[in-house]
C-alpha cells in the first residue's frame, strides 16, 4: 500500500500536507469522546445493577387517632400494593406486616410493646423484574399522584435520574464522534478535489491514455490513507497519556463510583484502532471524491 506506484506528484501538494494536522486533533477529540462513552456505559451498568433487584415503598402514617390512622394507612397500603403489582417491571409487591415491621425496628428502638402504640409508617417490599426493570421515575410520579403519603426509596430514584442523564450524555458523545467523522470526511473530500484541480493536466493525460477511473482514484486514496494515518498516530500519541492520567486520578480517588472511571479493554482497543479508522475513512472518501469528479468526463 505504501510502495504502490504513483504517476501523480501528490507528495508535493501543499493542500494535502495539512491533512495530518487536521486528523491529529480529530482523532484526539474522537478518542476522548469514545473514552467518555465507554466510561459512562460502565457506570450506567453498575448503577443499573444497583437500582434493580428489590426496592422499598414507604407509606407515611395517616393522621388521626390510633385506630383511624391505622385504618387509613391500611387503605393507602392496599392502594399502593395494587398499583405496584399492576406496574410494568414489577414482579411482586407485598406489604410488610405489623410484626415484621416491629421486628425490623426492634434492634434500634427496643421495647416492642411501645412500638405498637406509635403511628408507624407502612413499608412495601417490591421485587422488580431483572430483565425489564420498572421506570422508577414514572413510578414515583404515579405513586405520588395516586397514593397519599407514598414515597419511593430516594437513593434509587436519584440514581435513575443520573442514569437517564448519563444515557443522554452517552448519545451526545456518540453524535460527536460521528460529527467528527463527518467533518474529517468532508475536509478530505474538498482537499482531494483541490488536489485534482492542481493536477488536472496529468489526470487528463492518464484518462486519455486509457486509465480507468480507479487507477487515478487509487493514487489519491493511497495518499490520503498515508496522510491520515500519520495524523491519526500523532493524535493517538496525544490521547494515550491523557486517558492514563484520568485513569490514575480515578484510581487514587478510590471508592464511590469514580473507581469506574478507568477505561475497559474494549475502550482501549477502540481508541487504539482510531488512526486506522481515520486512515480508512480518508482513503474511501478520497476515492469517492475522485470517482465523482471523473464521472463528469467522457
Amino acid at each position: 500500500m505504501f510502495s504502490r506506484h504513483s504517476d501523480l506528484p501528490l507528495e508535493k501538494d501543499a493542500t494535502s500536507r495539512f491533512l495530518p494536522w487536521l486528523v491529529a486533533p480529530m482523532v484526539f477529540l474522537c478518542a476522548v469522546a469514545l473514552a467518555g462513552v465507554f466510561i459512562l456505559s460502565g457506570l450506567i451498568g453498575r448503577w443499573d445493577r444497583d437500582v434493580s433487584g428489590t426496592l422499598t415503598v414507604e407509606i407515611a402514617a395517616a393522621s388521626g387517632d390510633a385506630r383511624e390512622s391505622a385504618e387509613r394507612t391500611r387503605e393507602r397500603v392496599d392502594q399502593a400494593v395494587a398499583l405496584l403489582n399492576g406496574f410494568p417491571g414489577v414482579a411482586n409487591a407485598r406489604a410488610l406486616t405489623q410484626d415484621q415491621l416491629v421486628a425490623l425496628l426492634a434492634p434500634w428502638l427496643g421495647n416492642s410493646e411501645l412500638l405498637r402504640e406509635l403511628p408507624l409508617p407502612a413499608l412495601i417490599d417490591v421485587t422488580t423484574r431483572a430483565e425489564s426493570p420498572p421506570d422508577l421515575i414514572a413510578l414515583t410520579a404515579k405513586l405520588a399522584q395516586t397514593v397519599e403519603g407514598a414515597s419511593l426509596d430516594d437513593h434509587r430514584v436519584w440514581l435513575s435520574r443520573l442514569i437517564r442523564l448519563s444515557r443522554s450524555i452517552e448519545w451526545l458523545a456518540i453524535a460527536i464522534v460521528m460529527l467528527i467523522g463527518g467533518v474529517t470526511s468532508a475536509t478530505v473530500f474538498y482537499a482531494t478535489r483541490t488536489g485534482m484541480a492542481i493536477h488536472q493536466e496529468v489526470i487528463e493525460v492518464l484518462h486519455l491514455i486509457g486509465a480507468p477511473d480507479d487507477y487515478i482514484a487509487r493514487q489519491f486514496a493511497d495518499r490520503a490513507f498515508v496522510l491520515a494515518l500519520k495524523g491519526g498516530v500523532v493524535g493517538l500519541a496525544l490521547t494515550v497519556p491523557v486517558l492514563m492520567l484520568i485513569g490514575m486520578t480515578a484510581r487514587r480517588l478510590e471508592g464511590g463510583f469514580l473507581a469506574e472511571l478507568s477505561l475497559p479493554i474494549l475502550g482501549w482497543l477502540s481508541v487504539l484502532v482510531l488512526p486506522a479508522v481515520a486512515a480508512l475513512l480518508a482513503m474511501l472518501t478520497a476515492r469517492m471524491a475522485v470517482h465523482r469528479t471523473l464521472a463528469r468526463l467522457l
Binding site: 506528484p9 496529468v202 486519455l208 491514455i209 486509457g210 486509465a211 480507468p212 477511473d213
Partner: peptide, 23 residues
C-alpha cells in the same frame, strides 16, 4: 462509460503539444 478506457488503450495518440508529464 466504464467500457471506454479499454477502447482508449487501443488508440495511441501523439498530441499536438505532446502532453508529456514534466515530473
Amino acid at each position: 462509460r466504464y467500457e471506454l478506457p479499454a477502447l482508449r488503450r487501443r488508440v495511441g495518440v501523439v498530441f499536438q503539444d505532446f502532453r508529456l508529464l514534466d515530473h
